[in-house]
Simulated scan of single mutants.
Amino acid sequence: MKLRITRVALWGLVLLCMAFIFYMSAKPAQQSSQVSGQFIRSVAAAVTPDFSALSEDEQDAVVESFQHVVRKGAHFSIYLLLGVLCLLAMLTHRVKPGVRIGISLGICLLYAASDELHQLFIDGRSGQVSDVLLDFCGSAAGVLLTAGLAALVCRHLRKRTSPVSS
């Protein structure tokens, strides 16, 4: 029963993460740029004491200079989370480790491709193969990080429960 609840909760988190990605991708280009711009302004104001003293044009230039890297970092990060969640959910199923990893990566790749396809229908947005690759790299990092940590935990638990030899 506990396993079933855990499985449902983890797959629910996967779907929640996918819904968040869909929600963010559904924003028109101008609105999406405003969201990332506000994030950059907040961070710049927190880490640069004199940011607020800059003219509005200078602040806009700072925001514009970081737009690309922040947006691509967001792609990588949210798909890293999706990869972590997919593999955690797959760990609740009795399949071989390689199959778990493959299914998790497949889910993330298909979702990344569908996300870029979705963006073709949003005002001012475009679907880019480079974003699918970036998203997949993020999810692969999440899957591999989770797989590595899971293997370490399993190894540690096996050592603790194995009989001590004299």
Rank of each mutant, 00 (worst) to 15 (best):
V84M: 03
L87S: 00
R4Y: 07
L149A: 11
E58P: 00
A9M: 13
L80F: 08
A147K: 00
L110C: 14
R4K: 12
S130T: 14
F20V: 10
Q67V: 01
P163R: 15
T161I: 14
D57Y: 09
H156P: 05
R71H: 07
L80H: 02
G127K: 00
G148V: 01
A46F: 14
H156T: 14
A151C: 06
M90T: 04
P97W: 05
E56K: 15
L82A: 11
T161V: 15
A61M: 04
A74L: 06
K2H: 02
T6G: 02
L117Q: 07
V70S: 02
L149I: 15
L110G: 15
G102R: 02
F22L: 12
A140M: 15
S65G: 13
T146Q: 00
V69Y: 02
D135Y: 04
L16I: 01
L105E: 03
C137Y: 04
L3H: 09
V69I: 09
Q30M: 11
Q119D: 06
F22H: 13
A150I: 07
L15P: 00
L16H: 01
R41E: 11
L87Q: 02
H156N: 11
M24H: 02
Q38D: 04
S32N: 12
S65D: 14
F20P: 00
V8Y: 04
L88I: 03
F66T: 01
R4W: 11
R125Y: 09
A53S: 15
C108T: 15
S33T: 10
L133Q: 08
W11Y: 10
L152E: 10
W11Q: 05
G148C: 08
L120S: 05
L144W: 02
T6I: 09
V84E: 00
F66W: 10
S130E: 09
T161M: 13
L80K: 02
Q30K: 12
Q38G: 08
C17A: 13
R125M: 05
G37F: 01
V129W: 11
R158K: 15
S33N: 08
G12S: 10
L109R: 10
F121H: 07
L15E: 04
R100H: 04
M24C: 09
I107M: 10
F121V: 01
F66C: 03
D115Q: 08
R155D: 02
A141V: 07
L110I: 03
D123V: 10
L134C: 08
V99C: 03
W11K: 06
G102F: 06
T6W: 01
L91I: 05
Y79M: 08
F20S: 05
H93D: 07
L152A: 15
H93R: 13
R125H: 07
G102H: 04
A112W: 06
Q34I: 10
C17M: 12
A150D: 04
A53L: 14
G98N: 04
C86I: 00
V99Q: 07
S162D: 14
V129Y: 05
A141T: 13
L80W: 01
H93N: 09
A46W: 08
